[in-house]
């Protein structure tokens, strides 16, 4: 079986993987990163969004073997041991209810702020178009991303 080495949230892992193993299953079941959930089969929901080499990707639409050599950041590593400004803002603005979409939503928002540190509300909505939430109606998510951007989350 092919072997891959990946760095997940600052820790290097070397594992044998079946080629068809999805990255999200690798993260959840091999690296123990269960903070990243799976919500669909078709890249629509975005719950599984992580950062791969600094940009957002949907870890259910990638093979683990394709991540060989990559640096991956999940929701569990985003705050570097503390809370990232987005995590704080999601709490402060009540931007989550059941919380299932939240890891992906925050990772997508982090990517948005990376490329656009001070987005308008419309730009926030556009930036999160690949992440579905069934609880919040998105209103407080937009507020939270705004709040984080004002707090300088991108830096």
């Amino acid at each position: 079986m092919p072997k891959i080495t990946v760095n997940v949230d600052g820790v290097a892992y070397t594992d044998e993987v079946e080629p068809r193993l999805l990255l999200v299953h690798y993260l959840r079941e091999r690296a123990g990163k269960t903070g990243t959930p799976v919500g669909c089969d078709t890249t629509n929901c975005g719950a599984c969004t992580v950062q791969l080499n600094g940009v957002s990707v949907k870890s259910c639409a990638m093979l683990a073997i394709q991540a060989d050599g990559a640096e991956i950041t999940t929701i569990e590593g985003l705050g570097n041991g503390g809370w990232h400004p987005l995590q704080r803002a999601f709490n402060e603005e009540h931007a989550l209810q059941c919380g299932y979409c939240t890891p992906g939503m925050i990772m997508a928002a982090a990517d948005l702020l990376r490329t656009n540190p001070h987005p308008t509300n419309d730009e926030i909505r556009q930036g999160l178009e690949g992440n579905l939430c069934r609880c919040t109606g998105y209103q407080n998510i937009v507020r939270a991303v705004r709040r984080a951007s004002e707090a300088g989350a991108a830096t």
Binding site: T43, V57, G130
Partner: peptide, 9 residues
């Protein structure tokens, strides 16, 4: 095309 994360891949 799709959304930002998909456009990254």
């Amino acid at each position: 095309v799709a959304d930002p994360a998909v456009r990254h891949r």
